[in-house]
Design a protein around this nucleic acid. Sequence first.
RNA 1: GGCGCCGUAGCCAAGUGGUAAGGCAGAGGUCUGCAAAACCUCCAUUCGGCGGUUCGAGUCCGCCCGGCGCCUCCA
Length: 490
Amino acid sequence: MKLYDSLTRQLRDFAPGSPPRVTVYGCGPTVYDLAHIGNFRTFVAYDLLHRHLRWRGFEVDFVVNLTDVDDKTIQGAAAAGLPLGEYTEPFAEAFLEDAAALGFLPFASHPRATAYIPEMVRLVEGLERGGHAYRGGDGSIYYGVSSFSGYGRLSGKGGTESEGRSRIDGESLGKRDPRDFALWKLAGPDDEAVGAAWESPWGRGRPGWHLECSAMARSLLGGTVDIHMGGEDLLFPHHENEIAQSEAATGRPLAHFWVHVRHLKVDRRKMSKSEGNFHTVRELVEEGHDPAAVRWALLGAHYRSELNFTRAGLDEAAAALQRLLDFRRRVQELAVAEGAEGELADRSAELLEDFGRAMDDDLNVPRALAALWTLVREGNTRLDQEPTIGPGDRTALLAALAGMDGVLGVVELAAATRESAGAGEARIQRLVEERDRARAARDFALADRIRDELATEGIRLDDTASGTRWRRVRATAGHRPPQDGPKPVE
RNA sequence: GGCGCCGUAGCCAAGUGGUAAGGCAGAGGUCUGCAAAACCUCCAUUCGGCGGUUCGAGUCCGCCCGGCGCCUCCA
């Protein structure tokens, strides 16, 4: 399998340091607010890689951190008049709920930064011993970028002294070099007020943002991780600084592969609260969108390409999902007949391989989807011609579908959502039978009225040779009132 | 200003120098009481523009036009 590595800027063959184990560290959300769909585009990419590696037989240790102490969480807690943990925890829970709603495989762990303060302190101590850290004019401990020769290699930035704000900040904070960044910030009154201060050899304070990931990755996954992931914005300065800290401390590479996910756009623009195009997963679900459709809409483009999120795209995703669900159900319910078979089985295996090859190629989802659609179309064609299927063909076809969906994670998720929305089935069945009687009596006006009525509830009827079937084509019966829970911070 | 990315049909979107995947929408057809679903056929002589390299370029190089990202908290 090949993955694009941002550090070497090339596609490289992926092989873990100690197979079959693969260690992955993905930068997670800062829990000062609800994660938005832009965050989740990145996290869906995490989950795709996670699933694909598992499918390829690797044992994946996937760690995604929760940043629960930084400027924004402290500000948020102070504004809410809450201790830091009480402010951040609902957002951490919400993130995990949304991840589950989108069908994420559970992460090996999702460490909160505040639980790793001792590890961070030890890391700074090590950097201090190695001559990489110093106390700035404001009393905080800074990393001396000039002490690390590899600085700037990942992002191509920071090699020369930058200008503007960082230089001005640098002067006021007493940094030796404007590029230097805080490892340990001395606690101020605001920090103390919300409990964001811990004892350390340098006085009460809190960790710098970059330090958190270095410490958690090292402590949970060891000195070098196989893959380190994040959104493209983290390339600089976050990941550049992580490298500087970790590699100066351990003398070993932080990661064998650096994978960065391109940002999502909404309606062609960068998503932001001020643009009014800020969406959360729960908001879309509350509007009646299927979480599986949201997932589909977030995985459609290659992870290194721009992806534009629109309502139209979400509707298209829902339709695509329905077609897959219909196909799967058709195959499952098909009459099995012994006889000549093998052609469909061979073709299914072939297309599953195409799918796998596409995913092996730096997670080329669009190409993988082409294999999926070909399977659906060719399968339907064959089933239109011959309405029965051999047991081996059926097994192979369903296995190919399940194999692909095991990586994409959408069909099973959509099916589960529909099942959980399945109340009132007896009533629907009664209406369907009433309509069948009307049709038999050629009372098509009544028949059509019943059909239209059910359609408004998200129930679609299909009149087939073997009778009328009904199915739920929406996850929910319509608009659901907002549920209790965290709301986006204004 | 510095670094980088992108521009493929009405829309979404692959394409790793060898002659344009896939999906949606649209047109026609099969099936149907009518639909729906499914299937079949059609739907880019052409890849922002102009030059160049090459036997051959959407793919490489140069310039131009247009869009975007990072450089500051950010997935």
